[in-house]
Design a protein around this nucleic acid. Structure first.
Lengths: 207, 207
DNA sequence: TCCGCGGGAAAGTGTTTACTTATGCGGAAG
DNA sequence: CTTCCGCATAAGTAAACACTTTCCCGCGGA
């Protein structure tokens, strides 16, 4: 128990909210998962209400993620021209899948319960989803191959980023990926679609 | 009140489950919305439990949708070669968006609460999501332009179909579309990515 | 007119919920 | 050793919950 009780409450509540949903998770369950005696109300030493726990979890995780995405984006700023565009695209797609996976609890709570709390929607969107879409847009701008390509990059980001987010959401709900396409097949298809934006696409691999 | 009480309960409960979530919707609220006296337990004349209401709503709506998608697919089977491939793709994308929109309540409940009820996940996936992905795959197979294109169509369907589903989910949660891309821009980007699969893409419109 | 009956209302049941109040403990400071 | 004090627990409260039991009204058939 190195983490403070407050931190444990935030992390465990986020886990439970993602797993069972906000309304279906009782304060007693959060307390038990955080190492407090269930039903004794020890949670209220740290938060005014159950809602405050949700708000704190959203705010703190979203803020942290926002910084991480900015860092990841900085890495992508340095274009690694040593590898081909195809490899770089696959790398981007896998990075997106990994990020959504890493923050799967935040993503899940977002789509599951957050529409009831519009003030929290904004923080998570600006901390996780929007940065992800923006990252895709920025990334394409940074690639020399796409320099001359005219496109509505925000809309392209909405399609390609949305596909990634959906892939993970679907997989977590159903237990298997959409279209029964395993990760590598999904990445290949994603890359192939992105390659199609180039005026003279390179030879594409037969899958 | 032309519809039977049972039908009203199913429709109103689905609406409320999509809006507030399953756990956050009380039986009394469903009764009130269905024209019964709230809290009086009149719902139990028609269903054994709150869960049975959810199961019935999922099963009946999924079954209905499944038939509708089959019909829509049959229409698409007759390829309308009078319009260009670009127009046909836009039509497909808009049809997908419309279908997800039409069944937005089913979709929302699916991603919101259904992972807790694995036995219901199967029916909705097979009734709504999988048919949608399959429809995309089948559609591409039917288009002469894509006849010679080698691709992992299931994975392509997972990307393109997932983007459509995510677009609506995001819009309903946030209130505005992802990447702030309005519907027409989204459709254009989607069409453009799909066009890129063709070996020698036609001249693409500058957005 | 009488009966049967499908289906809705009244009024409850026990349980679970979020949240409160008062008590107790262990360790650091004086 | 004593005095705090931060923090957890014990033991609640009132409300909301899913669900039950009982009654009753209206209607169709004989």
């Amino acid at each position: 128990m190195t983490r403070s009780t407050r931190e444990r409450i935030i992390d465990e509540s986020l886990r439970l909210f993602a797993e069972r949903g906000y309304a279906a998770t009782s304060v007693a369950e959060i307390e038990a998962a955080s190492g407090l005696s269930p039903g004794a109300g020890g949670l209220y030493r740290h938060f005014k209400s159950k809602y405050e726990v949700l708000a704190a979890a959203m705010n703190e995780h979203a803020a942290r993620t926002r910084v991480q995405i900015a860092e990841t984006l900085a890495e992508f700023g340095v274009v690694d021209t040593s590898s081909g565009i195809e490899e770089r695209l696959a790398h981007l797609c896998r990075a997106g899948l990994a990020k959504v996976s890493e923050e799967r609890e935040l993503t899940r709570v977002f789509f599951r319960d957050l529409s009831q709390f519009p003030e929290l929607v904004a923080t998570v969107r600006e901390g996780l989803l929007q940065p992800m879409f923006d990252a895709i847009t920025t990334w394409f701008h940074a690639q020399p191959e796409y320099a001359g390509v005219e496109a509505d990059w925000h809309a392209i980001g909405a399609v390609l980023g949305g596909a990634v987010v959906h892939y993970r959401l679907f997989q977590e709900t159903v237990g298997e990926p959409p279209g029964r396409a395993e990760r590598d097949r999904f990445v290949s298809a994603w890359v192939r679609l992105a390659l199609g934006l180039l005026p003279h696409p390179a030879v594409q691999p037969v899958v």
